[in-house]
Simulated scan of single mutants.
Amino acid sequence: MNVEKIIVIGSGISGLTTALTLQLLGYETVIYTDKEADQISNKNAHAEFASLFPSASVIPHSLYSGQLKELFRTSQSFFYELRNQSFSGLRIHRHFEIFELEQDEPRYSNWMVNFRPITELSPQVIPRRSCSQNLYGWTFNCIFADWPRYFPALTACYKQSGGNITRRKVKTEDLPALPADTIVNCSGTGSRELFDDPLDEQLVMQGHLLHKPEAPLITNSSDEIISYNYTPKASAYSSSSGEACDVYCYPRRDGWVLGGSRETGYLSSPNTMECSKKHAESYQIGGLTIPTAILDINKDILQTTFGHSLSPSDKLHPLIGYRYLRSKEDGLRLDHETMYGKTVYHNYGHGGAGVTLSWGCALALASRITSKNKPQLQKLLLKEFEHIT
């Protein structure tokens, strides 16, 4: 029996998840990539490769798409099923989104598990600064992918299932001769030149992160792992447009991931992003400039609410990465076209939701390629996971 071969371009979370999905559904897949996460030592030299250091909470933040609800709910459902199968690195956080100014509930309030406004909670359990007075927001359960465990486990599953990762930088002139009639493009920022992305506007979001190794998990009295996004008043921390900016903390088994910043800029080439914001107050940590608010506000919250310490003198690893928004109208590109006699499926422009939508987008493309509905494919895929995990 002839098995159709599919080439996936890009080895980030979208490329890997899509390739694994198609491989488990019976296709012969190969990933072409010019860089692999486990072979990159200087992560800050490849800020465009977002899969090197995601916070990896399954929450639909920082994405523009009319397909968001359907894709998110499919992805969320699949993540919960994988967790039920004890797939490595997946756990549940009790997550808080807290604001110092009143906010409307987010559009995803009905999509999250155990969503509750914080007015229903005791004030002592709500992440807060020492000077906090009135707070607003909500809490819910969410899947968290512990990246140092989850991503390697996903890669191992792909290789165990027969998938192949080939180091190769694909150029536009290479496309006609690629040895497959079906191509899946998950090259992210590389899509602008490789496939001549049709949008003039090419937005990216810059983010600063700090990793504190060996920091303990943050838990509550019910042994739930706690994470948070916290937005103070704009006078304490703001974006270049003057809007209040949030900080966050996600505990992993190897320490805390602290952020953040969300400065929007423009993609001028696959590896060059232009962000205009320069933070007046900053720390120099590990040779990088990090906004002081990321450390100072998190320090206050962690000490005030949870009794944990954080200091500029701690062993902190700084990171600066980019999320490819593409456009604020409908940035996610999940479609197909015919080029050089081949069918090219596009899967990029996820903004800050690459991990969040990884399974939803993979199953959506698989449905188009196989002409089977997503519930049917999800059931088949879960059975295959039982065999290899």
Rank of each mutant, 00 (worst) to 15 (best):
K171N: 08
H208S: 13
C186D: 03
P148V: 07
A177V: 11
A156C: 08
P148Q: 09
L121E: 07
Y150M: 14
N164A: 12
S191M: 04
S122N: 11
H211G: 07
A180S: 11
A215T: 09
G162R: 00
I118P: 06
E243D: 05
Q124N: 14
Q133S: 04
V247H: 03
S235H: 01
S235I: 02
K159L: 07
A215M: 10
L199Q: 08
S227L: 06
L178K: 12
L217F: 10
K169L: 02
C245W: 12
R252A: 03
N134L: 03
L203W: 05
N229F: 14
Y230Q: 09
C142Q: 00
L154S: 05
P127D: 05
A244M: 13
Y158E: 00
Y136G: 00
K171W: 07
S241P: 04
I126F: 04
Y230V: 10
L194V: 05
G162T: 01
S191R: 06
D181C: 14
T155Q: 11
H211R: 05
V170L: 01
S235Q: 06
P127C: 10
L210C: 04
I126D: 00
L154T: 06
T139C: 02
K169H: 03
P123Y: 14
G163I: 00
Y248H: 15
F151W: 15
W147R: 08
I118F: 11
G242W: 14
S122I: 11
L194T: 08
A177L: 15
F144E: 09
A180K: 07
L135R: 04
Q202T: 13
Y150Q: 15
D200I: 12
I118H: 10
V184M: 09
S187I: 09
D174F: 10
V247Y: 05
S235P: 02
E224N: 04
T119N: 14
S241E: 12
A153C: 14
L154N: 04
Q133K: 02
E201C: 14
V125Q: 12
Q206T: 02
P179C: 12
P198Q: 03
D181S: 15
T155S: 08
N134R: 04
Y158G: 07
R128A: 01
T166M: 12
G188Q: 01
P216C: 06
I165E: 04
M205Q: 14
G242H: 15
S222Q: 04
A156K: 08
T231N: 03
A244C: 08
G137E: 02
E224I: 00
N185V: 10
P152S: 13
K171C: 11
T172G: 14
S239C: 11
S130T: 06
G137S: 01
K212C: 12
N141I: 02
P232C: 06
S130W: 05
L121K: 08
T155H: 12
T189V: 11
V125I: 13
P216W: 05
N134Y: 03
S241R: 07
C142L: 08
A177N: 13
N164E: 10
C142F: 04
P148W: 05
E120V: 11
